[in-house]
Simulated assay, not measured.
Amino acid sequence: MNLKKELYLTCNDYTVSNKKFDLLYNSELDMLETFPQPIGQDLAKYYESSAYISHTDSKKSLTDKLYQIVKSYALKSKLKLIDSFQTEEKNILDVGCGTGEFLLTCKKGGWNVIGVEPNLNARELAISKLNKNDSSIILSDINEITAQQFDVITLWHVLEHVPNLTKYISKLKSLLKPNGVLLIAVPNYKSFDAMYYKNYWAAFDVPRHLWHFSKTSIKKLFSKENLKVNKILPMKFDSFYVSLLSEKYKTSKSNMLKAFYIGFRSNLKAISTKEYSSLIYIIKNT
Rank of each mutant, 00 (worst) to 15 (best):
N179E: 14
K258F: 07
T10W: 03
N164K: 11
D193V: 00
V181W: 01
L93R: 08
S50I: 11
N230P: 08
S50E: 13
D238Q: 11
P163Q: 02
S170F: 06
L32F: 13
I82N: 06
D94M: 01
S174C: 09
I232Q: 00
W111F: 07
L43H: 14
S217F: 02
Y281A: 02
L81F: 10
G96Y: 09
S135N: 13
H161A: 07
T146S: 14
I271S: 12
L176Q: 10
E88P: 01
I218L: 13
L24Y: 13
S191T: 01
A194T: 04
L183D: 05
K78Q: 11
I218R: 09
Q68T: 06
K274F: 03
V95D: 04
S128L: 13
H157D: 02
F240Q: 02
K248D: 04
L172R: 07
I114E: 14
N285W: 04
L32G: 05
R265H: 11
K45N: 07
T15R: 01
L183Y: 07
S17R: 11
Y276W: 13
Y25A: 06
L159S: 08
L155T: 10
K132T: 15
S272M: 12
I138G: 02
N285Y: 07
E28F: 13
L155C: 15
E275H: 14
S272V: 08
S252R: 04
A122P: 03
E33C: 06
I169S: 05
N2K: 15
W211E: 02
N230G: 11
N226K: 11
F260V: 07
L257R: 14
Y261S: 05
K224D: 09
W201R: 03
T105D: 09
V113C: 05
G96S: 06
S214P: 03
L176P: 01
D13I: 08
E101C: 02
T154P: 11
Y168F: 15
A44Q: 15
Y47R: 10
S223T: 10
T56P: 10
F222A: 10
L268C: 01
W156D: 03
I82K: 07
K171F: 00
G109R: 12
P36D: 10
K215P: 12
L172D: 05
L227K: 04
N12S: 04
K60T: 02
I92Q: 07
A44E: 15
E101A: 08
I145P: 00
G263P: 00
T251M: 03
K173G: 02
Q148R: 13
Y249M: 03
L125Q: 15
G180V: 04
F264K: 03
N12C: 04
T34E: 08
P38T: 03
V206M: 08
S136M: 14
W201F: 05
T56N: 07
S246C: 00
S252V: 01
Q86C: 12
S278T: 05
L93Q: 09
F260M: 14
D64S: 09
S61Q: 11
Y200W: 07
V70Q: 02
G96E: 10
T154V: 09
L244D: 00
A74M: 13
L210R: 06
K231T: 08
L120F: 12
M235Q: 00
S84H: 12
K253E: 03
L257Y: 11
K129M: 05
K167N: 13
F213A: 04
Q149H: 08
K215I: 10
F192N: 04
A122D: 02
K173V: 00
E88C: 03
S72R: 13
L221A: 02
D13S: 08
N255E: 10
A194E: 06
E124M: 14
